[in-house]
């Protein structure tokens, strides 16, 4: 998903980005009890791979208790989701164990099932008579503890470039020079349409300033100027791992920041009454 943010500063944009990556809660497999593992992967490797599978939680992840703070002993439905994996290869050919074999013991969550991944996510391969039998417990967490809980594969923002072309000077160039000008940009920001230089997508610009350097070399420094749009506008691009939808991530991240602020505000208000902050 892409969206743009304007009327604010990079510090706010960066706070959004940082919270999306590191502080938006999701569910991921955190405990694994291995009953039998005769696969080529050792237990630790297998558990690690299970942890990285995106888990789609049906319901609001934010309402789920943190396993650490839950008042249950061990784990319960309020703080975790259990999964089961039992695959044994009785055939001659090697088989694949994928996220499709991971069976949820409640209907609150499922491993990511996406039409772009019809075969599921590969966990391990099993040779003849090899077997994996285990139960796994998925808990809530955030990306700053372990990247497996991060709901995004990329969350980035970009300053919107402001590129000004001087068409009077451009018209003075020979068609070959115009072609050279267009070719000067390594990011291919410019194109020629009907003999005119156009910018199909301003966001291709990576601020290399090669076009300005080219213009200077041919003695026309006013041909083009590239700078950041003032006041800045940011284009966010959020790509998810599949555990949450992109819009859910943005909304959840906004809630997280607002909660942070509320925590401080509450403290400031109560301290106001006591007239003293703890020192």
């Amino acid at each position: 998903m892409t969206f743009s943010l304007e009327g604010t500063d990079a510090s706010i944009a960066n706070a959004l980005r940082r919270v999306m990556i590191a502080e938006t809660p999701t569910v991921a497999i955190h405990f694994v009890r291995i009953e039998n593992n005769t696969s080529p992967l050792n237990d630790e490797m297998l558990s690690h791979r299970l942890g990285l599978i995106p888990i789609v939680y049906r319901g609001d992840v934010r309402q789920l208790n943190s396993n650490r703070d839950c008042d249950c002993q061990g784990n319960c439905a309020r703080c975790s989701v259990e999964f089961e994996l039992h695959v044994r290869n009785d055939g001659e050919d090697t088989i694949e164990v994928t996220s499709h074999d991971l069976r949820a013991l409640s209907d609150m969550a499922v491993p990511l099932d996406d039409e772009t991944l019809p075969r599921g996510i590969l966990i391990c391969k099993l040779g003849k008579f090899q077997e994996i039998r285990l139960t796994a417990i998925a808990t809530k967490g955030v990306g700053k503890e372990h990247a497996k809980w991060s709901p995004v594969s990329t969350a980035v923002f970009q300053y919107e470039p402001s590129i000004r072309l001087n068409y009077r000077l451009l018209d003075e160039l020979s068609p070959q020079d115009r072609q050279n000008f267009v070719g000067s940009c390594p990011a291919r920001v410019f194109e020629i349409q009907d003999g005119r230089v156009v910018i199909p997508d301003v966001y291709r610009c990576t601020y290399t300033e090669e076009c300005m350097r080219w213009a200077e070399q041919v003695g026309k420094p006013d041909l083009v100027t590239v700078k950041q749009l003032e006041p800045p506008r940011f284009r966010f691009s959020v790509e998810t791992t599949g555990s949450l939808k992109p819009a859910e991530i943005v909304q959840s991240c906004l809630i997280t920041i607002q909660e942070k602020i509320r925590k401080i505000e509450d403290l400031l208000v109560t301290k106001q009454e006591e007239q003293q902050l703890p020192q």
């Binding site: 969206f3 943010l5 604010t8 706010i12 959004l16 943005v250 909304q251 906004l254 920041i257 607002q258 602020i261 509320r262 401080i264 505000e265 400031l268 208000v269 301290k271 106001q272 902050l277």
Partner: peptide
């Protein structure tokens, strides 16, 4: 302390605005 409170308030307002605009 009061100044921090005002800063926190304005940050809260800004996030609230981003939230409602996004929605």
């Amino acid at each position: 302390k009061d100044l921090l409170h005002e800063g926190v308030d304005s940050l809260k307002e800004m996030l609230h605005h981003i939230d409602s605009e996004f929605t």
